[in-house]
Design a protein around this nucleic acid. Structure first.
Lengths: 250, 250
DNA sequence: TCAAAAGTGTTTCGGATACACCCATGA
DNA sequence: TCATGGGTGTATCCGAAACACTTTTGA
């Protein structure tokens, strides 16, 4: 058995609550695509989403924050708990557990997992695998491979939650770099909502919230007219989010 | 120690997953008030919301359904998981646990609890206490006493969730008796939203959804003009809920 | 007969949608 | 110079909100 894994199993059932895990759907935005950070298990294993376990004296949120920090290198991540999963049968990966030699251990027991989603600035993330995995990379949310357990269900539910709560969630502020153009912001909304929006109406409405500051700079190098760069005015943004959010998508 | 309690503790850690519970915020509507079903612990204990534990081969939903059935006598309850709780410190009730003589047992360990809310027809519920409690009764959601653990937080979050998802949740269909008047339906919406709505606009909009069937009967005995009775057309209602719900409250 | 609640309209207004025109840029 | 994308402005429409009048009922 893998050394790291052995160490982890030995301390696992003392340090962590049994039967309970947290899993994170980490969203990023890059090249007009909404991305999700996935991990691939060692030993030619399957893909999964980043997860972790809850220490005896640790809150659920803290456990998720710790996991996020470990996988992305980022602090101060926007994070929301959205649903808990854990059908008694998650039989998708018994073979893998056997191959890893962990069947029978507390790791192979039934788990209730608390789902979180996170919004991160793609450009600031340096993906890091954990002790159980050797690859950590971004995947288009619409091209997710088969994942272990019920992780496909978890990703699907996370995306639905994001779509439904789009008005109240600071997607622009969290998923984009600090400077961005209006078409980029629109791209983000169109990708999440999965439908086209009118360019002119989008700009009008977005500016009407009064949370954007237009900079002198423009994004040059593009093939056409250079669009302005914008930045969120932090204070105005925060108060706008408190007062009902940025109403889009119905 | 109480006999039922003793039996439960003995089998508890074999039959159920440790550290995991479910809690239900059961909403009803009566006399123009949104109500929540509360339990009171034996031995002069505190109030709490109904909860239960998850069997080893039972899904979270099934566990909640089982609990609901036991407390209300109802099958086919509308039920939604809305959030999971479980700060490491839920120190509110150590004294009570000591008085019951269960400190040290698995019941006194740290729990992660999965929150559900339910919508039930008040008139069809016969509240039943469980093995740990001797009172089971309705309380106005705005006059909840101090509850054990973080149950006040759970109720608050359930109400917020209900308000935010009002458009997509069949509150009218689930919280009212099968026959009801338009003013009663409006009362329900006003109570949940906690604000007044225009009587005429409400009726117009509600009827425009095309899910209500007006009966020949009227509600007589009131002090004034007798209002018509309505009934939901099940098929039309279901398809309307799928197609975006009944849009109210922003 | 009268106060209060219920049924049925019409008017008004604002935000969302649709659409037209000009400008800048690299190919 | 031209195809394409970006910036700005205007007309329209529909649903929400505001509001008026009549009818019914028990007291």
């Amino acid at each position: 058995m893998d050394k790291d894994l052995k160490i982890f199993l030995a301390k696992g059932d003392k340090e962590f609550l049994p039967h309970i895990s947290i899993d994170c759907v980490i969203f990023g935005f890059h090249e007009r695509q909404l991305k999700v950070l996935l991990l691939k298990w060692k030993e030619g294993g399957s893909w999964c989403i980043p997860g972790g376990f809850v220490k005896h004296q640790e809150s659920l949120d803290a456990s998720a924050i710790r996991t996020l920090k470990e996988r992305t290198g980022l602090n101060n991540i926007y994070l929301k708990q959205f649903y808990s999963f854990g059908e008694p049968k998650r039989d998708n990966s018994k073979a893998l557990l056997r191959r890893l030699g962990v069947n029978g251990s507390w790791l192979a027991k039934r788990f209730i997992t608390v789902g979180y989603y996170a919004l991160v600035d793609y450009s600031r993330v340096s993906p890091k695998p954990d002790w159980l995995t050797d690859i950590c990379e971004w995947h288009d949310v619409h091209k997710i491979p088969k994942l272990i357990y019920d992780h496909n269900v978890i990703v699907k539910k996370a995306l639905e939650t994001l779509q439904l709560s789009l008005n109240d969630v600071p997607v622009g502020h969290k998923l984009l770099p600090s400077k961005f153009t209006m078409p980029e912001l629109q791209d983000l909304y169109e990708t999440i909502l999965d439908r086209k929006l009118d360019r002119r109406n989008f700009q009008k409405k977005m500016l009407s919230f009064g949370v954007l500051e237009r900079l002198e700079e423009r994004r040059t190098g593009g093939a056409h007219k250079s669009p302005f760069l914008y930045r969120f005015d932090r204070k105005k943004y925060d108060s706008a989010m408190k007062g009902g959010g940025l109403k889009f998508g119905v």
